[in-house]
């Protein structure tokens, strides 16, 4: 009979006790220190709560009086999203090929990856500000921004898909002496096409969402309408716009989900 054991401890996640306590201590100190140094101005917050009351008071009931402006803003967002998706997907295809390790020579692969990383790293609002400065206020800056945004996502996913393709077909084509472009058309495109359509629809939905945001910094669409309403303290109109944005996003998400399920 073995000796009766009456203690048991769950095996710790990090086996080394020194490292474990160092991690706990580090996390604890970090959290405490950051929270303690947060510049919360309670007087300002108290004042802010009053202000919040005023905002919410002003926001109810939401005003749809200027629904013409609202509809125009939305149509513009929709146009921005459509053009950006079209341009973004079109540009994503060559960039994705560049960034696919199994197809591109190394220098081109790095260039493709770098483009994708840059496009992904910057939040669309930052990109929008730069484009607004470069090409002026309005929907064109919005389209350019979302083209970059689309490349960041579509080219990345597409490049991953290309890296997964069945290479036998490509080799068969090459062995038959087919030129490079024909290889692309016959061996690779059919394999990535279904994915591409799904990505495009997903991106259209994302772009519609994002267009509401980049408008806030002046890149056109419903976001600009919202920023203007907020800036002019038209909180009731701002709430109406926000409600419609939420509604449209929900509908667009449902529609894009349905379409992607069917493909």
């Amino acid at each position: 009979m073995s000796t009766a054991r009456d203690t048991w401890h769950r095996p710790p996640f990090i086996a080394n006790p020194i490292l474990r306590w160092a991690v706990y201590l580090g996390v604890g100190v970090y959290v405490l220190w950051t929270i303690a140094t947060l510049p919360i101005d309670w007087a300002r917050v108290a004042e802010g709560l009053e202000r919040a009351q005023r905002i919410f008071g002003g926001a109810f009931p939401p005003s749809f009086a200027r629904s013409g402006l609202l509809i125009d803003g939305f149509l513009e967002s929709l146009k921005i999203a459509i053009l950006a998706t079209f341009g973004g997907v079109l540009l994503s295809i060559p960039i994705a090929f560049m960034a696919a390790r199994n197809i591109s020579p190394l220098p081109i692969y790095y260039l493709g990856r770098a483009l994708i990383i840059i496009a992904r790293s910057f939040h669309p609002v930052i990109v929008a500000i730069i484009f607004v400065k470069a090409v002026g206020f309005g929907p064109f800056a919005g389209v350019l921004t979302l083209v970059v945004y689309s490349i960041g996502f579509v080219a990345k996913m597409l490049a991953e898909r290309i890296e997964e393709i069945d290479f036998g077909q490509v080799e068969a084509m090459r062995a038959a002496g087919a030129p490079y472009l024909s290889t692309l058309f016959y061996a690779i495109f059919p394999q990535i096409m279904p994915r591409q359509i799904g990505l495009t629809i997903y991106q259209l939905d994302s772009n519609l969402r994002a267009s509401a945001v980049v408008g806030i910094v002046g890149a056109g669409g419903i976001g600009s309408t919202l920023a203007n309403a907020f800036g002019r303290y038209d909180y009731d109109f701002a709430l109406a716009i926000t409600m419609v944005i939420v509604g449209v996003i929900l509908v667009s998400e449902a529609v894009s989900g349905q379409i992607r399920k069917r493909i």
Partner: peptide, 17 residues
Amino acid sequence: MRRYPKEDIRRAYELME
């Protein structure tokens, strides 16, 4: 907290044994 009573742990080991 996984602070099981000693008696339960002993019984668990016995049964597992």
